[in-house]
Design a binder for these strands. Structure first.
Lengths: 152, 152
DNA sequence: GCTTTTAATGCTACAATGTTGCATCAAACA
DNA sequence: TGTTTGATGCAACATTGTAGCATTAAAAGC
């Protein structure tokens, strides 16, 4: 179903070094996991990926690695329908796009074709840093099964 | 700063009864708190309002009261920059508008003039339930103080 | 290659937010 | 007024995220 033409990503090691950070197992693995995924990943999912790759890691370390990536502009956060954040890699020059959150399975996917929209006219004194456009509903897989236990 | 012309809200008791729910202190107070606020309130803020009004309440009860309001379409959730949800009353027939989240003070306010935008063309099989357009940055108050401890 | 420096890591402990189960209470209705 | 059952209040727990600090190892200098 993911129909992304895989972008030519900058190698993780270069990306990290270019931002003046130390190239560590954790960071490399996190970036590669994000790059390999067609949709934004949660902290939990990334942790599972690292574990599957046999890379020992601590919950806190992962939080901090992700914080650093966001801080550096390498990755970005998307607020899903739950409390947890999702993360996706920020390909340089890529346009900001909207996201779709499936309220049943919780999956978030990128709507590459839907731009995040124009900047609004904000009241005086307000500074705009970024915008988030998230659509909610049921994805094709969940929608087919009819309205089952759709909470929230 | 809030420049809302206060909408003529349906009295809380009627609103609850119209949805087939029991008219309880908690629900009435929650609805009135939301109706009185110019911006979406967090669970915590609502709890504080109830406490200030001398209405005994339990954390869980408040969660459930809010769940019910959302379920009934009386209120709606907005995902802020933190984990916690914000709630606002849904005036009937009101247009969906965007929100602004101040990354410094955490406040969310309504951008009444900014529509939530047109529905996107979703892949086949997808069902759209609602959309959320949230802008992030610094509000006028926080922006004036310059970039202090602006994390995330 | 070896040493030094300090950024990252991995613990532990904790805070905040939200959920589940169940006994009790009280709103609505006869 | 009594009955029914939706709503509440409590306790216990789950999840997500943060703070402090000792230890490790990446990178730079020798």
């Amino acid at each position: 179903m993911p129909d992304h033409p895989p972008p030519a990503f900058v190698p993780a090691r270069e990306l990290i070094a270019a931002h003046g950070g130390r190239v560590t197992r954790t960071r490399v693995a996190v970036i590669e996991a994000l790059q390999a995924s067609p949709h934004p990943l949660s902290h939990d999912e990334i942790g599972a990926t690292l574990a599957a790759a046999g890379i020992a890691h601590d919950r806190v370390t992962l939080y901090r690695a992700l914080d650093w990536l966001v801080e550096q502009g390498i990755a970005q956060r998307i607020a899903g329908g739950e409390r947890a954040w999702r993360f996706e890699i920020r390909s340089d020059g890529e346009h900001r796009h909207a996201h779709f959150h499936c309220d049943r399975c919780g999956q978030i996917l990128c709507l590459e074709d839907v731009p995040a929209g124009p900047d609004p006219a904000l009241p005086a004194g307000f500074e705009l840093a970024r915008s988030e456009l998230v659509f909610h509903g049921a994805c094709a897989d969940c929608g087919r099964e009819g309205a089952k236990a759709a909470k929230r």
